[in-house]
Nucleic acid binder design. Structure first.
Length: 476
RNA sequence: GUCGGGGUAGCUCAAUGGCUAGAGCGCUGCUCUCAUAAGGCAGAGAUGUGGGUUCAAUCCCCACCCCCGACACCA
């Protein structure tokens, strides 16, 4: 029987259009999904959008359209963008999907309730109309909201709460013993300290009026809407059938890997496992926490006006170029700084005059020497062992999510091939076995880059077949 | 403020209590010519600051500076 591999990304908020910042984890997840497909695993790769937030209602109002129209627009934009990135997701979940997502949320709610972990409580807090959120007393500056400089209203409302406090000890053990393994390790320590500092119950519903009716109603209580985090986290099980297709659900759950940004670790490593424990469901196996994309050292933000539109870059340089940069430039756990200069440097040196030039050299030689079929077996022992070495290191780095290293490893094989060419001078000797070896090496390289640069991989394999040299990445 | 991570060549990353701290890109010189003036060879170039421990520290300790994150119900 095939091994299964279930990988998810966070689902994006649709109160605005997704941008370059959201693309990193989609690409990382895609690399792993493609890698596991190469290993012949039964892969399910999930991504999607989180659409039941109150902000959407407000943003839609501003644009003068219905919330439904509004979230449709942005969800479709996200889906289209990920397709442009060649993100090979198996399913795109939307939390407004009443047929796919809602039954799972309702079921999970009822299971948690059955376990006695959901109860009603009166909540009194400082509500800032500008923030549309409760503020803590410690957040206030001279009794005012620090952002809006207004006095918050004291609002008292009845909400449902989740008994998170009950799971503190369990969660400590689960994180400590790597029952959910968190990458990188610092993140594990960070969240472990948080859990150890004590867990309070958190509210998991909002009054219907405040949400203007947007969102998933609490089962058996129409006056309350399920809090968006409880709702959103459930996508990981609802999308694979929880609450509507138990067979499918059993096939893929638990998730082998959740890929998330560093800002939402708490929800994934604390709230989510607690909810699953309450519902007596298995826990995800691993969580990969990636960094953010900065622009010239600054956070990407609308107010700074430095938000990068990936479509422009894709159009000019190709999808694989952008994928390459984001995966190669820095370790996946760290913040990655984007500037067009850095991007171009990588593009020219690694893609245009790196892999692109090598492919052109080898295919060009094969073409000139009227070379027909390459032998799958490599004659040269040094080249052969170099390839074997590369494959081992490639696999190891991928298993540890060190994508930048995987690429560096493959690129050192590319460099080895350049040296090999220089040394053997097949354009002089007309030695066919050298060209044969190199073509075989090229085929190996194409396979190794497939998870990262699927388009380029395909193009190389095609050139190997038809021996027509084509420039892969024109120098910029 | 408390806690955690980081600060290594112009850039992106490695590494180690000890031979000359590695690699790629960029730069300089030489060179092959199959190739996108690409490839090869060679070279210059670095451990945030100030103390301390040690025969020896980039690595350990202390202080300081800078960056990132966490310190819960904003998603």
């Amino acid at each position: 029987m095939k091994r299964k591999f279930y990988v998810t990304t966070a689902i994006d908020y649709v109160n605005d259009r997704v941008h370059l910042g959201h693309s990193l984890e989609k690409i990382q997840a895609d690399v792993l999904a493609r890698y596991h497909r190469i290993l012949d695993d039964d892969v399910f790769f999930l991504t999607g959008t989180d659409e039941n937030a109150q902000k959407n209602v407000l943003a839609a109002e501003k644009e003068g359209i219905s919330p439904k129209e509004f979230v449709d627009q942005n969800a479709n934009f996200a889906k289209t963008l990920w397709k442009k990135f060649n993100i090979s997701f198996n399913y795109f979940v939307r939390t407004t999907n009443k047929r796919i997502h809602w039954p799972g949320v309702k079921k999970l709610w009822l299971k948690c309730k059955e376990s006695g972990d959901i109860y009603k409580k009166n909540y009194t807090g400082f509500y800032c109309l500008g923030c549309e959120a409760f503020l803590r007393e410690t957040d206030l500056k001279n009794g005012l909201c620090p952002y809006h400089l207004k006095k918050p209203e004291i609002i008292s409302e009845e909400n449902y709460f989740f008994r998170l406090s009950r799971y503190q000890k369990d969660l400590e053990k689960i994180i400590e013993k790597d029952e959910i393994e968190i990458f990188p390790r610092e993140r594990k320590n960070e969240i472990l300290n948080f859990v150890k500092s004590g867990l309070e119950d958190f509210s998991i519903s909002r009054p219907r009026e405040r949400m203007r009716g947007w969102g998933i109603p609490v089962p058996n209580d129409k006056s309350q809407i399920i809090y968006v985090w409880f709702d959103a986290l459930t996508n990981y099980i609802s999308a694979i059938g929880y609450g509507r297709d138990e067979k499918l659900f059993k096939k893929y759950w638990p998730a082998d890997l959740h890929i998330i940004g560093k800002d939402i670790l708490k929800f994934h490593a604390v709230y989510w496992p607690a909810m699953l424990l309450s519902a007596k469901l298995e826990l995800p196996r691993k969580i990969l926490v990636h960094g953010f994309i900065t622009v010239a050292g600054q956070k990407m933000s609308k107010s700074l006006g430095n938000v990068i539109n990936p479509l422009e870059i894709i159009e000019k340089y190709g999808t694989d170029s952008l994928r390459y940069f984001l995966l190669r430039e820095s370790p996946p756990f760290e913040d990655l700084d984007f500037t067009l200069e850095k991007f171009k440097k990588r593009y020219n040196s690694d893609l245009a005059t790196g892999i692109g030039n090598l492919v052109l050299r080898v295919i060009g030689l094969a073409n000139k020497l009227k070379f027909s079929n390459s032998k799958p077996k490599i004659k040269d022992q040094k080249l052969k062992s170099e390839i074997a070495k590369t494959k081992r290191a490639w696999k190891k780095s991928l298993e540890e999510f060190r994508f930048n290293e995987s690429l560096a490893i493959v690129w050192s094989l590319i460099s080895f091939c350049d040296k090999f060419l220089q040394e053997k001078k097949p354009w002089e000797t007309k030695e066919k076995k050298v060209v044969s070896d190199l073509i075989t090496a090229l085929a190996e390289i194409a396979k190794l880059i497939e998870p990262f640069l699927p388009e380029t991989s395909e193009k190389i394999l095609k050139q190997i077949k038809n021996k027509k040299p084509i420039v892969l990445f024109p120098k910029a």
